[in-house]
Structures are given as C-alpha cells and as structure tokens.
C-alpha cells in the first residue's frame, strides 16, 4: 500500500494539500506533520511493523528545526529507501535546489506551491508509484 505523508510547518498548506490528495484520490487518509522530526519518527516507527509499505512524502524545504534537506539526509541512511518517494514542495523552485535534490535517490518530483490539479495528475504518473493508481 501507499501511505501519503505531508510535511509542512504551514497549517493552511497542509490543509490544501490534504484536500487535493483526497480529491484526486491519491490517498484517502494522508497523514500530516508540522515538524520534519515528527514525520521521521513516524516513518521509523511505522516500518517496524511487518507491513510492506511505500511512502509518498510531500516535503517542504524551508522549515524550522529540521528542514527538508536534513530530512532527506536521514532517509538516505534507511534500508529499503527505494520505498520512499519524495515530492519536494516549495514556495519557489530554485535552480540550485533542483541541482541539490538530484543527489538524493528518493526525490521523484518538484512542486511549486500551491499544489495544482495538474500536479496531482503528475504524481499519479510517477513510474515508481503509478501501479498504485491503476484502475482495475
């Protein structure tokens, strides 16, 4: 199964993204965190269960305490990191950020806020996770 995790310190952004994710049927119950640290802890804890899971993570870059990059660094050390599918969500896409993101194997896509319907369709087409959205 695919679990969607939204990481953003802005409550309204989280609200918008949750709505969009559910509206476009990417996930029925996305989980959200205002702090990256909390999200990380959730994932580590969740993985201890035997359940085989893929994680779609909508990750903000600019956050207090642990920012998006720190978060990505931590994921990189995980086993089975191919199960993490990170979408970078920022208020503006910097060319430098895009370059930097290429170093992380988990980053699949970039979204400039606000998330649009088009972005939602694009997410579904990401090859690593597209099989979750195939209509049977």
């Amino acid at each position: 199964m695919l679990e969607v995790i939204i990481v953003d310190d802005d409550q309204i952004v989280v609200f918008i993204q949750k709505k969009m994710i559910t509206n476009f049927e990417i996930a029925s119950h996305p989980i959200s965190f205002n702090l990256a640290q909390a999200a990380l802890e959730h994932i580590i804890k969740d993985r201890q269960s035997d359940l085989e899971k893929d994680y779609l993570i909508l990750l903000d870059i600019n956050m207090p305490h642990m920012d998006g990059w720190d978060f990505l660094d931590c994921l990189e050390s995980h086993e089975k990191k191919s199960n993490y599918h990170v979408i970078m969500v920022t208020s503006s896409i910097d060319r430098k950020d895009k370059e930097k993101a290429k170093k992380y194997s988990t980053v699949r896509y970039f979204i400039e806020k606000p998330i649009s319907a088009q972005d939602c369709e694009k997410i579904k087409e990401i090859s690593e996770i597209s099989h979750f959205f195939e209509r049977v």
Binding site: V13, I16, K19, M20, K113, P114
Partner: peptide, 10 residues
C-alpha cells in the same frame, strides 16, 4: 500568495 492560490484552486 501560494496559499491563496492553493485555496482558490480548492
């Protein structure tokens, strides 16, 4: 601004 745009999209 991004928030406003996102909300309007919603």
């Amino acid at each position: 601004l991004a928030r406003i745009m996102g909300l309007i999209e919603l």
